[in-house]
């Protein structure tokens, strides 16, 4: 009787051992992505390639520590492969360097010149993370990281590190034009350089700013928000717009 009980206990122990050993393999199998990173990228590329050109109306908000500016009405022009122009329809807008990157066409048109690396999923958002490493050592772009909603085949966030112009970040919100991969709202974050003009040049009226204001001005992060209200897609855009 005792021998039978001992034998059953041993079998149970072996089963647990096997289960523990096999669990990682099982988990890894169950979490293997349905699509490879290359396939996801190919699907997004197909979506983006539907757009040859567009003209969009939008409202542009500049949020840079040392700039106070009104919200501007802008027109955004795009033409393949990578021509982008943001034009203020009435007033003046400070457009950051690298704003051409508000269109992801730059990346997807030239996707063959990148190594596509699957970096798993973002723990908080569950978005697929795919890194793009340029094959060319002298490329201006050093690394691009895309955060992709692979159920909708949409890039929700993109971070691009460049050789000369710092790191850009794009955050996209989609709506009516999601089928074309075109966002309703884009937040473009960028690095700014220090701004300072000599007081002897500006002859400022010194109203005595607070320490908090002075510290805020030193912030080197800038943001441009574009709320798109309307797109006119594939109706042709003359090259003269981009000159």
């Amino acid at each position: 009787m005792n021998r039978t009980i001992r034998s059953i206990t041993r079998k149970k122990r072996n089963f647990h051992l096997i289960a523990v050993l096999l669990l990682p393999a099982f988990l890894s199998f169950s979490f293997t992505e349905a699509q490879t990173a290359q396939e996801v990228i190919a699907q997004i590329k197909a979506k983006v390639e539907k757009v040859n050109d567009y003209v969009a109306q939008g409202k542009l908000k500049t949020n840079v520590a040392f700039i106070k500016a009104p919200v501007a009405n802008v027109k955004i022009y795009f033409k393949k492969p990578n021509k982008v122009r943001i034009r203020n329809t009435s007033g003046i807008s400070f457009i950051p360097k690298g704003s051409v990157n508000i269109s992801l066409d730059n990346v997807f048109t030239d996707i063959d010149s990148y190594d596509v690396i699957d970096a798993g999923r973002d723990a908080k958002t569950g978005l697929r993370i795919i890194k793009l490493l340029p094959l060319n050592d002298t490329s201006e772009v050093v690394l691009s990281t895309l955060y992709i909603d692979d159920s909708k085949i949409l890039v929700m966030k993109a971070t691009t590190t460049t050789r000369d112009n710092g790191t850009y970040e794009l955050q996209m919100t989609y709506g009516r034009y999601a089928d074309f991969g075109l966002a309703d709202k884009v937040i473009f974050s960028f690095n700014t350089r220090e701004y300072k003009l000599p007081k002897g040049v500006t002859f400022d009226y010194d109203t005595g700013g607070t320490k908090a204001e002075e510290n805020k001005i030193k912030d080197r992060k800038g943001k441009v928000e574009i709320d798109y209200s309307d797109y006119v897609i594939n109706k042709g855009v003359p090259d003269s717009v981009f000159q």
């Binding site: 520590a65 040392f66 700039i67 106070k68 500016a69 009104p70 009435s90 007033g91 003046i92 400070f94 701004y195 300072k196 003009l197 000599p198 007081k199 040049v201 500006t202 400022d204 700013g209 002075e214 001005i217």
Partner: peptide, 11 residues
Amino acid sequence: LRSTGIDQIAA
């Protein structure tokens, strides 16, 4: 253009 910042005013 001020020494520490820029103020943009609508026309």
